[in-house]
């Protein structure tokens, strides 16, 4: 009954939506000319990075806050007495592979961070690769699941966000929140991205490792 009603509503909605999309007039020039005109003042040479970290850098600041909120929510529903012990079973092939892959993943992560200024890449991509390395190591039982976050982990997780906030506030003196001076924009963006890479890697890894029951003892 309910399934049927939702199905009919979805079909109707899809029809209206597709009709509306097909009825759209030809697009105007939009924002790309504006982005191109200001690229020289952005401190980076890749347009998406310029939008992400400079023109709409405030979105990115709040997006890191969203990730922190998700991790906090995850920790808040965790049992507090979680005890973590290394798993028993050893999987030699997987472990060897993970040991070989780990250094490569670190190199790729650092490269992605550096490349972000001029070509596809950046802090989020680098952090995703590093976090994937941590998850791989965990699945190969080289890295135990995380229980309650210790002080060093809390520092690592919030560090990047706090650096981002501190830079945003420091720039208040020069005009507005997050208003980079064009001469130093490149350096400041690299500083923020480096901090974010470490924090986001720990954060993304945490979303998996705090949740994992692999190798935990209840």
């Amino acid at each position: 009954m309910r399934r049927g009603a939702v199905g009919v509503a979805a079909l109707l909605f899809a029809g209206v939506l597709i009709g509306a999309l097909l009825g759209l007039p030809a697009p105007g020039a939009g924002l790309p000319p504006l982005v191109t005109a200001q690229m020289g003042n952005s401190g980076v040479t890749h347009p998406v990075t310029a939008v992400l970290l400079n023109f709409r850098g405030y979105d990115t600041l709040l997006e890191v806050a969203v990730l922190l909120v998700a991790l906090l929510g995850l920790l808040a529903v965790q049992r507090s007495e979680r005890a973590v012990a290394p798993g028993a079973a050893v999987e030699p092939v997987l472990q060897t592979l993970a040991r070989r892959a780990a250094p490569l993943m670190v190199v790729v992560g650092v490269y992605l961070l550096w490349a972000g200024a001029s070509r596809p890449g950046g802090a989020f991509q680098a952090a995703a690769v590093l976090a994937a390395g941590a998850v791989l190591a965990h699945l190969a039982r080289l890295l135990p699941a995380w229980s309650a976050p210790r002080a060093w982990l809390r520092t690592g997780i919030t560090g990047g966000f706090l650096v981002f906030l501190a830079v945003a506030v420091a720039l208040l003196g020069g005009g507005a929140l997050l208003q980079y001076p064009p001469a130093h924009a490149g350096l400041l963006i690299l500083l923020i991205e480096a901090g974010l890479t470490v924090s986001l890697a720990l954060l993304l890894a945490g979303l998996f490792l705090f949740l994992s029951e692999e190798g935990t003892r209840r």
Partner: peptide, 13 residues
């Protein structure tokens, strides 16, 4: 009105 990042709409927020 406050232009975050100093760009102003539509490029900035």
């Amino acid at each position: 009105r406050y232009a975050v990042g100093g760009w102003g709409s539509p490029l900035g927020i």
